[in-house]
Design a protein around this nucleic acid. Sequence first.
DNA 1: CATGAGCGG
Length: 288
Amino acid sequence: MPEAESYSWAEQVEAGEDGALPPPTEEFNESSGIKTVKEYKHNEDGKVVKVSTRERRKAPKSIAIRKTWRKFGAAERDPPGPNTSNTIVQVEPFYMQFIHNAEQVDQETEEDPLAKLKNQKLVSCRICKGDHWTTKCPYKDTLAPLQEKLQEGEKTAEAPGGAPGTPAPAAASAQPKTGKYVPPSLREGGSKGRGETMQSKRDESATIRVTNLSEDTREPDLQELFRPFGPIQRIYLAKDKNTGVSKGFAFINFHRREDAARAIAGVSGFGYDHLILNVEWAKPSGTN
DNA sequence: CATGAGCGG
């Protein structure tokens, strides 16, 4: 709130001869975050008054507090404030544009969105466009989708007169003029073999399934029971997802298949709690 | 009796 004060004699002296007013002063109190501006104006009666305006800092106090932090590391001896040799202070707000799906943006027309969905598969693998989720894509093993694409490419190449405006989908993947990501295994010459670093699934070859467990058997119990046969990689005790109650069976993943085999021989038929355990080789999950 | 969970355009 601007407030007018009477113009003191001492200050009158500072005013210039020709009625010019003294320049405004401005001071900033760092701890309170309040800026005080004092300036001189003529009021309605033509008299000179001093107007002081106080304004609270708009930036959050947390910023002011951060400014008081000591610098450290290579910047330890830097003077306060940003070092212009390695820091850019952006005063203007800056806006970022997020593009969620470039293809969608490109194809954005007035056509009915439902029509678009119509001939679309429910799921489509991002890698091979197959009829499954990407995480399960076995493209390294079966290159059928890629080969289909290549065949399509050959067809369009053989028919140079056909549909000039229509881009061939295979051409896009063969020549990366679209900025689209192509996984290494699908890039040119990448058609052979799987990547050495990528195991396609968990190794289930040393996994056994234990059934007929009593409901109060816990994972540590299983650990104790099977440890004698060899190092164990993982134990999974099936539980109801909501109640946490054991479903009475479990999977034991050994490091070595031979240990698993001995565990089957040793524990199957073993009386545990009041039940007789059944142990067999596990089948990989997802066998519907 | 019984073959794990989760992520998701």
